[in-house]
């Protein structure tokens, strides 16, 4: 394989991987605060992309459409928590997870009724020819995706490590009961988390729509890959989510590139998930996850 082709596979992996990373971040945020796996996460990504397209075609400049879409989806996330999660806050985590499955189906159907079945597109944030590195090319939009992803990760790390509220959120994840006894408003933390998670997912949706388009059904595959990335990186670790996402994207594209026979792309999911399983056998806590010590 030529250097040019190899780099191209790497760029392809990073492009898909950064989308997985942003989705995985959304899973991580909610899991960190509540222990819930939010299966509507991919749907938030989809809603972000579709909302931005609607705002943009309605006349809003691209930047405003992007911010507006994130705002709209954040409100959806907050409402989702208030209407669906809040009533079950004292039920088992499993019950809450099942609710998110139902919500994902409801959101997908609602999106189909609102936006129809056809995929839609959004112009790239910056015009211009693809950037070339040793003959391999990458579109400027991918740089946007990576840059914004990096900013979000840094912001989240600072929030979790340096702010009182961030520490409160982490406390809720460790032990909700103890957190409440210490005066942390658990309900508000959960609400905040769902809003933030929806916002991150929506940002991902807005960023990738110029690259891969968006339709009401796009959320299912993105959600699956994002979830796998979160597990691979170690559930609960924002840095792990990003590492997991990029690793999954690279695994997929390199398995297409390195397998010598024609038609290898049909096996790329199988290979990626096989490696995911192997990693979990060796490191059950994921790549960057922390071992949760449990006394028996």
């Amino acid at each position: 394989m030529s250097l040019q082709d190899f780099l191209q596979f790497v760029f392809a992996g990073i492009t898909s991987g950064s989308v997985y990373a942003l989705t995985a971040l959304g899973f991580t945020l909610i899991y960190n605060a509540t222990g819930i796996i939010n299966f509507a996460q991919g749907e938030f990504v989809m809603l972000g992309g579709l909302a931005a397209v609607s705002l943009h075609s309605g006349g809003a400049p691209l930047a405003l459409a992007a911010i507006g879409a994130v705002a709209v989806v954040t409100v959806v996330g907050l409402l989702f928590e208030l209407l669906a999660i809040r009533p079950l806050l004292n039920a088992s985590v499993l019950a809450q997870i099942i609710v998110t499955v139902g919500a994902s189906l409801a959101l997908r159907t609602a999106a189909m009724l609102i936006w129809g079945r056809e995929a839609v597109a959004l112009p790239a944030f910056t015009e211009g020819a693809p950037l070339s590195v040793f003959g391999a090319t990458v579109v400027p939009q991918t740089v946007w995706v990576l840059g914004v992803t990096a900013l979000i990760v840094i912001a989240l790390q600072v929030f979790y490590r340096r702010t009182l509220l961030g520490k409160a959120v982490r406390a809720c994840a460790v032990n909700p009961m103890a957190a409440r006894l210490l005066g942390i408003p658990y309900g508000r933390v959960v609400l905040l988390t769902f809003g933030a998670s929806a916002a991150v997912a929506a940002a991902g949706g807005v960023l990738i729509t110029p690259i891969s388009f968006m339709s009401y059904s796009s959320g299912a595959l993105i959600g699956l890959k994002g979830f796998a990335a979160a597990i691979l990186g170690g559930l609960g670790s924002p840095a792990g989510a990003v590492a997991g996402g990029l690793a999954l994207g690279l695994l997929e594209s390199l398995s297409v590139g390195l397998l010598p026979w024609s038609g290898a792309s049909g096996y790329k999911d199988a290979i990626a998930f096989l490696i995911l399983l192997l990693v979990l056998f060796a490191r059950p806590q994921g790549l960057l996850g922390q071992v949760s010590a449990q006394k028996v």
Binding site: S2, Q8, F9, T15, S217, V256, G266, K268
Partner: peptide
């Protein structure tokens, strides 16, 4: 048919299979 590659309907990026195809 010198190369054949596949993808899923909602896949985000197809440069990997296309690069593979280009090398044939």
């Amino acid at each position: 048919v010198v190369a054949k590659e596949s993808y899923k309907t909602d896949e985000t990026d197809l440069t990997a299979p296309l690069t593979k195809i280009r090398s044939s």
